[in-house]
Amino acid sequence: MKILNCPLNGPRNISEFVYGGEVKQMPDPASCTDREWAEYVFYHNNGTGVVREWWLHAPSGYWFIAERHRVSDEVVRTYDPSELEQSEFFAAPPADVQEARQ
């Protein structure tokens, strides 16, 4: 069984974790095209190399980011999501979306 290093709880059996999908940038839902939105929701980049993924340590309810190599399955790095800028998650930050619409 693989070991995953949780930034909060340290190395643990992978069975303690839940996969949360790839870290993707959401296009601005207010202005993107249907196609851009569909690509965000349905399409997954299935290339080789290092990918950023969401992982949850279920017993502590802690979400973090793991950078994993898709060929070797080696987890290069794990860290708290706060280390990523909000722009990594959103093309247009949600707060701005709200203000722009109001």
């Binding site: 643990r12 059996n13 303690e16 017993p59 502590s60």
Partner: peptide, 25 residues
């Protein structure tokens, strides 16, 4: 699955983990 012998889990240690398939502290 967490090693809770004294040398790796001395007094003052806390583990948030799975115990008999349920989450536990």
């Amino acid at each position: 699955g967490v090693d809770m012998r004294a040398q790796s889990f001395p007094p003052g240690s806390v583990a948030q983990t799975s115990v008999a398939r349920i989450n536990a502290i």
